[in-house]
Design a protein around this nucleic acid. Structure first.
Lengths: 333, 333
DNA sequence: CTGAAAGCGCTTACAG
DNA sequence: CTGAAAGCGCTTACAG
C-alpha cells in the first residue's frame, strides 16, 4: 500500500491542503512548526505524490518522447546521449522508441506517445513525413537533416561545406580518380554531400563520372557492399569519399579484402567523426559533426517550445570540422 | 482542448459508463446499435482516454524503466534494442536513463522511476548495489554479470567457458607468451574471464605472469591505453586476450602505432562479437554473446514478474560462441 | 440493456 | 495561519 497525502495529513494532524501547499513550496503562509512537522513525516514515510494523480490536475508530464531509426546506430546513440543529458538536468525523462527506419512505426509511436501525454517529441527520421494533423499544435523537433522543409525548428549541420573541404583536401593531395559512396534515393538522402562532391570536382576541372558513384545503405554493411561493387568496377580510383563513417568502416574491409592498403593504394574519408574512427588502422580522416550537441540542442529547443508554445522555435546551424588523420595519401608533386 | 469521455457520451447521447465499457471491451451487454454509435464517435473525434486519469484508477502504467551505464556503449545499445523490441510487442514503453556509470545516479533514477509508477525496472549496472528497501517488493531485473549474488532473476552468460575456449585456441595455435587486458577491480569486474585465462594457461603448463596482465577501463580508449602500457613493458608477447571487443579495438591501434601487424606480429581476440568487429582489418576473432537476446529476455522476464508478482523470476544462462576470424596467427609446427 | 454515483490521489480556488 | 470542498477524467461496483 502506497502512502498517500491523506495519510500524511492524518499523521501530522493537518489537512491535505496544508501538506500539498508545503510540499509545493506555496507554504510561506504556514507556521514554521507545521512546516517542519509535515516535512518530517514526509521524510519518515518516504512519501512522494502520486505521479498520475498529480498529472491529472497539473498536466505536466515532464516526459518527452524520442523516436530514432536505430538505437544501435553510432551516430544516433550519441544524439540520444545529448538529449538525455539535457533532459536529466531539467528533471524530464525520455520515452525511447526504436522505429527501425519505418515510417509506419513512427506514426504508431507518435500516436502512442501523445496518448501518454508526453510534453513533446523529438523525431529523428529518415522519412519524408506527411506531418499529420496530430502534430499540429504539438511541440516537436525534427532531426531529419533538412529532408522536410519548414520554417522553424530546423537543427541542421553545414554538411555541404564540410564535405566540400574534405573532397578538396583529396584533390589538393593530388587525387584525380575519386569515387563516392552515397545514398541518393529519398531515404537518408545525402544530397548535400553528393552535391559538394560534384561541385568540388567540377570546380577543380575534374570530370564527374557516373561510374565512380555507388549507392547503398548508410551502414557498415552497406558501405562494405557498395565499396566492393565500386572497386570491382573501377579499380583505378585512388580515393573514396564515404557518405558517413559507418560506410567508411565498411569500405576499409572491402579494401582489405582486395588486398588494397590504406592509404597507400586507396585513400578514404568519412563523415561524422565517431569515436571509433580514431582507432581504426589507419585512423580515419573524416568530417566532424557534433552529434551530442545536436541532441542536447534539440532537447533544449523542445523544452523551450513546451514552456513557451507561442514563440517560434529557432533554427540552428552547426559547423563541421575537417579531421585530418592517416587514411589519405598525399602525392608528391 | 482535449476531448473527454464526457464529450463522447454527450455527443452520442449515452452515459460515460456506456462509453467506457464499450471501449474496454466489457460491452457485450450493450446493443450493437449503441456500440456502433460510440465507436463511430470515438473514431470521428479521435478520442483516446486520458493516460493519467486511466492510470489513476487502473494502476497499470505499461511503462518500464531502464538504466544503463552508457547509451553509446556498443554492447548496451544492443541490449536496449532487445528490450525495446519485446516491450514494443507488448505495448509497453521504455523510460531510458543514462547513469554514466554512477551508482549515485542509479539511485536517483530508481527513485524517479518509481515516483512515476513504472511497472518495473531493468538495471544494467557495473556497481555492487546495496539494494535498498526501495526495491523490495518491486519487479526488477539486474543485468550486472553476476556482480550481485542472488537467487533468482539472474541473466547470465557462460563467460568462463567462452573465454577459456578462446585462450585455448591461442595456445593450440602455438602461442606461449600471452598477455591479457582486463578490468579486475570491482567495477566491471571480469573475474570469470581472467580466471579462464589463468586456468587455461596453467592447465597447459604455461606459467602465469603478473607482468603480462594489464588493467584498464573496458572501453576503446581504455584498451588502447592498457595495450600501449603492456606492449611497452612486455614486447615479447605474441598474443593478447582482450577483456572485450572495445578493448580489442583499442589494442589494434596500440599495435598499429608500434608498427606491429596483426596477426603476424601480434594476435588478438576480443569478447562480445560486436557487429563492427567483422569489419576491422583484419576481422577480429572473438567470443560472441547474445546482447540482443539478453535484453529481450530481460524484458520478457520483467513483464512476467509484473504480471505474476508471486512467482519466482527464473534464471537464465546464455551460451557463448567462439568466432574465428583473422586476428590470430597459427604457428606451423 | 443502461446510468447515477463513488472513488482513484492529488491541487487549487475560496472562505474563514 | 488553516481547512472544506470542488474538480481533474477516468473506471467500476451497484441498482434498476
Amino acid at each position: 500500500m502506497k502512502i498517500t497525502i491523506k495519510d500524511i495529513a492524518n499523521i501530522v494532524g493537518v489537512s491535505t491542503t496544508t501538506v500539498s501547499q508545503i510540499l509545493n513550496n506555496k507554504g510561506q503562509r504556514f507556521s514554521e512548526e507545521t512546516r517542519q512537522k509535515v516535512l518530517k513525516a514526509v521524510e519518515e514515510y518516504d512519501y512522494s505524490p502520486d505521479y498520475f494523480a498529480k498529472n491529472m490536475v497539473q498536466r505536466e508530464s515532464k516526459t518527452v518522447g524520442m523516436i530514432v531509426p536505430d538505437v544501435t546506430d553510432l551516430f544516433f546513440s550519441k544524439v540520444i546521449e545529448g538529449i538525455e543529458t539535457y533532459l536529466n538536468k531539467k528533471d524530464y525523462m525520455l520515452l525511447l522508441c526504436n522505429s527501425k527506419h519505418s515510417a509506419e512505426m513512427e506514426k504508431k509511436f507518435i500516436k502512442q506517445l501523445q496518448n501518454r501525454s508526453v510534453a513533446g517529441i523529438i523525431l529523428a527520421s529518415p522519412n519524408s513525413l506527411a506531418l499529420e494533423k496530430r502534430m499540429k499544435q504539438f511541440p516537436y523537433i525534427l532531426i531529419d537533416r533538412g529532408l522536410n522543409t519548414r520554417e522553424q525548428g530546423n537543427i541542421l549541420v553545414r554538411e555541404y561545406e564540410g564535405y566540400y573541404a574534405a573532397v578538396e583536401y583529396l584533390i589538393d593531395a593530388g587525387h584525380k580518380k575519386i569515387g563516392i559512396l552515397t545514398n541518393e534515393r529519398g531515404y537518408y538522402e545525402m544530397t548535400d554531400r553528393h552535391k559538394a562532391y560534384y561541385n568540388c570536382l567540377t570546380n577543380h576541372g575534374i570530370t564527374y563520372q557516373e561510374s565512380y558513384v555507388e549507392d547503398g545503405p548508410v551502414t557498415i554493411e552497406g558501405g562494405y557492399q557498395a565499396a566492393t561493387r565500386l572497386l570491382e568496377r573501377a579499380d583505378e580510383i585512388t580515393a573514396l569519399c564515404c557518405g558517413n563513417d559507418q560506410m567508411a568502416i565498411g569500405a576499409y574491409r572491402a579494401a582489405f579484402e582486395r588486398g588494397l592498403s590504406i592509404p597507400e593504394d586507396l585513400s578514404i574519408f568519412g563523415f561524422d567523426n565517431l569515436e571509433i574512427t580514431a582507432y581504426l588502422s589507419p585512423p580515419l580522416t573524416t568530417v566532424a559533426q557534433p552529434a551530442f550537441d545536436i541532441g542536447y540542442t534539440a532537447a533544449e529547443f523542445l523544452l523551450h517550445a513546451i514552456k513557451f508554445p507561442q514563440e517560434a522555435i529557432p533554427n540552428k546551424m552547426f559547423e563541421t570540422q575537417f579531421i585530418l588523420r592517416d587514411s589519405v595519401k598525399v602525392f608528391d608533386r
